Amino acid sequence: MRKFIKIVFSISFVFYLLALVVLLFIDSRGSIWTNVSLLEYVKHSSNFVPFKTISTYMTALSDGSMNIDIPIKNLFGNFIMFLPMGIYLPYFIKKINKISAFTISMILLLFVIEVIQVVTRRGSFDIDDFILNMVGALIGFGIWKTKVVQKLLK
Rank of each mutant, 00 (worst) to 15 (best):
K3E: 13
K3H: 12
I5N: 08
I5A: 10
K6Y: 13
I7E: 07
S10N: 10
F15N: 06
F15G: 13
Y16K: 05
V22N: 11
V22D: 08
L24F: 01
D27E: 14
R29Q: 14
R29V: 12
G30H: 05
S31C: 06
W33V: 07
T34C: 06
V36C: 08
S37F: 09
H44K: 15
N47E: 06
F48V: 15
M58T: 14
D63K: 09
G64E: 12
M66L: 15
N67S: 13
I70C: 05
N74A: 05
N78S: 06
F79W: 05
L83W: 01
L83I: 03
M85G: 06
M85Y: 06
I87R: 02
P90Q: 07
I93T: 08
I93K: 12
K94H: 14
K94M: 08
K98M: 08
K98T: 14
S100V: 10
T103Y: 06
S105Y: 05
M106K: 01
M106P: 02
I107G: 03
L109Y: 06
L110T: 01
F111R: 03
V112F: 08
I113V: 14
I113A: 01
E114P: 00
V118C: 05
T120D: 05
R121M: 15
R121A: 11
G123Q: 00
G123H: 00
S124W: 03
S124C: 09
I127N: 01
I127Q: 00
I127K: 00
D129A: 02
F130C: 02
F130M: 07
V135C: 07
G136Y: 00
I143C: 03
W144P: 01
K147M: 05
Q150E: 08
